[in-house]
Nucleic acid binder design. Structure first.
Length: 511
RNA sequence: GCGGGAGUAGCUCAGCCGGUAGAGCAUCAGCCUUCCAAGCUGAGGGUCGCGGGUUCGAAUCCCGUCUCCCGCUCCA
């Protein structure tokens, strides 16, 4: 399984889709660059998202907020708290845990055990079970659990990691995996990147690179509302970079330290959020399917443990080479964010609803796609090794990137069948015309078969060849990447032929 | 951070019982080619991850170090 992702990464690098970051300096873990083909793919996917979300919805507008935001934003959003997890490693099992969940779960197990035993005791004595809650307070495991939780919350409040280290030690908290009680010291992981605002390090204020783009939308909510003449329900969409200091950034571009999100926050009247949640689940899934992701490789996965801001949450998961993983999150965020920002900023972040004749803090439905993950999904689904016929009548392995024509970095390639002046001239002429409309390429080197294969690997859906017949009747062949079938089309109709297949409007109309 | 794997040409790798680097593909120039890659001729390209040690001599042996990849936690 994981071998496939290594192979895909090598392919992506070789073809110029994705390079390891800073490679000549031996690389930098979890950071990747988009090469000439990758940047096209990325721009196209982002563009199709933008058009489907903003251009096609009269009640959705765009935004491009800054990566740097006021530090209080991240206190209000809950990230300062949630993203500073103290962690420990177990020396025997080599597993890493968040200290708080480790201790809480242990305490919970103790409580459950206490309840079971107290219940058994009560049954034995024939005492009424309604006294269970009262009796269990006296049980020693239960009391120990309470003590653990107290000490945990005290240490967390003081950010006293040494105290947590000794708590683990003194209370002999076992590793759920190995049962071992040998722990490394507790260390804090800060998942947010910090930097300094102001050039003088001593005087500068520490600020964060945004860990998600959503907060820019919430913070600008009153401004967009005022200038956009918007009425609930309405949405604000944004594409942009976000940064997370992942403990381990792995699996190629699946989890990167610097990544790009495409988010849309949809503001609705409280009470209607369940309806809109369903609407957006359906719309977003349809968008992915319309771009050619296979239904059997997509699924919804509802969250069992909800984040601090969420009322309901589901993921659109994609079957990556390493398994089903989150591609897009659709969350019902309630009024959490706007209310928090209202509280922290002291500003009123309410909406006056004329039809209701009242003000309220709108509820929010969020759709959030990882653009890099989306790219990985299309690359991994599209990467195909298959047998193809050879000139000698045999079969040979062909590597072809079967991605949707609309997102292909190079949409059409033009070849003269042979490198003779008449062929070359005509081919150049056609290429130079087509490039006004499509991302085009021209190639005259190597045999025709070889050129086809080269562009197959780049995902180019159409290849046009100028042959002997072109010189006689001005027709060319257009060859399809996936079927290898050719059609003969008059030179004058090539643009229309390609337009039907590569025009974004057609795609939007059928969405 | 812990465990595992790996660093030699742009790519895939060989060379590793020490004697001063090689293949295929790719690239470039030319020739040949009338529809599905690897035909011919020629050319360019390597501080063998980095540092130190042993040795007359290290890609090869020893020590150290760095980086990347995979797994563990988390998420877009």
């Amino acid at each position: 399984m994981s071998l496939d992702i290594v192979k895909l990464a090598a392919f992506a690098k070789e073809q110029g889709f994705i390079y390891p970051g800073s490679e000549i300096y031996e690389g930098i873990a979890g950071v990747y660059d988009y090469g000439p083909l990758g940047v096209e793919l990325k721009r196209r996917l982002a563009d199709l998202w933008w058009r489907a979300m903003v251009q096609l919805h009269e009640n959705i507008v765009g935004l491009d907020s800054a990566i740097l935001m006021h530090p209080r934003v991240w206190e209000a959003s809950g990230h300062v708290e949630a993203f500073h997890d103290p962690m420990v490693d177990n020396k025997v099992s080599k597993k890493r845990y968040r200290v708080d969940t480790l201790i809480e779960e242990y305490a919970q197990r103790l409580e459950e055990k206490a309840r079971r035993e107290t219940e058994k005791k009560l049954r034995k004595k024939g005492a009424p079970l309604h006294r269970l809650e009262e009796e269990v307070q006296q049980q020693k495991d239960f009391q120990r659990a309470q003590l653990l939780k107290d000490r945990l919350s005290q240490a967390l409040a003081r950010k006293d990691w040494a105290a947590l280290t000794s708590l683990l030690q003194e209370e002999q908290i076992p590793c759920p995996e190995s049962g071992s009680t040998e722990w490394t010291p507790v260390r804090q992981f800060n998942l947010m990147f910090s930097t300094h605002l102001g050039p003088l390090a001593e005087e500068a204020q520490e600020i964060y690179l945004r860990p998600e783009t959503a907060q820019g939308i919430f913070v600008d909510f009153p401004l967009v509302l005022r200038t956009g003449r918007l009425k609930v329900p309405f949405g604000i969409a944004q594409i942009g970079k976000a940064f997370r200091n992942e403990i381990v950034a792995r699996q190629f571009i699946f989890r990167m330290r610097e990544f790009e999100q495409m988010e849309m926050q949809f503001f609705v009247q409280p009470g209607t959020e369940a309806y809109w949640y369903e609407v957006w689940k359906e719309k977003r899934l349809r968008w992915h399917l319309h771009l050619g992701l296979k239904p059997e490789l997509l699924r919804f996965k509802d969250h069992e443990h909800l984040a601090h801001y969420a009322q309901a949450a589901t993921d659109i998961e994609f079957a990556f080479p390493f398994g089903f993983r989150e591609l897009e999150g659709i969350h019902s965020r309630t009024d959490y964010d706007l209310s928090r920002h209202a509280a922290f900023s002291g500003k009123r972040l309410e909406y006056y609803d004329e039809t209701q004749a009242q003000s309220y803090v709108p509820y929010v439905i969020e759709t959030s796609v990882g653009l890099d993950r989306l790219i990985l999904a299309h690359l991994s689904q599209g990467y195909t090794e298959e047998m193809a016929p050879t000139a000698e009548g045999g079969e040979e392995l062909r590597i072809v990137l079967k991605i949707h024509p609309l997102i292909a970095p190079i949409q059409v390639a033009v070849f003269p069948l042979i490198r003779k002046e008449e062929f070359v001239q005509k081919a150049r002429l056609l290429y130079e015309e087509l490039r006004f409309f499509f991302m085009s390429a021209y190639e005259e080197k190597d045999s025709i078969g070889r050129r086809y294969r080269r562009y197959d690997a780049k995902g180019t859906p159409y290849a046009i060849t100028i042959d002997g017949q072109t010189l006689e009747d001005e027709t060319v062949t257009i060859r399809d990447r996936d079927t290898l079938q050719q059609v003969r089309v008059p030179m004058s109709q090539v643009r229309a032929y390609l337009g039907e297949r590569l025009e974004v409007a057609h795609w939007l109309r059928t969405l």
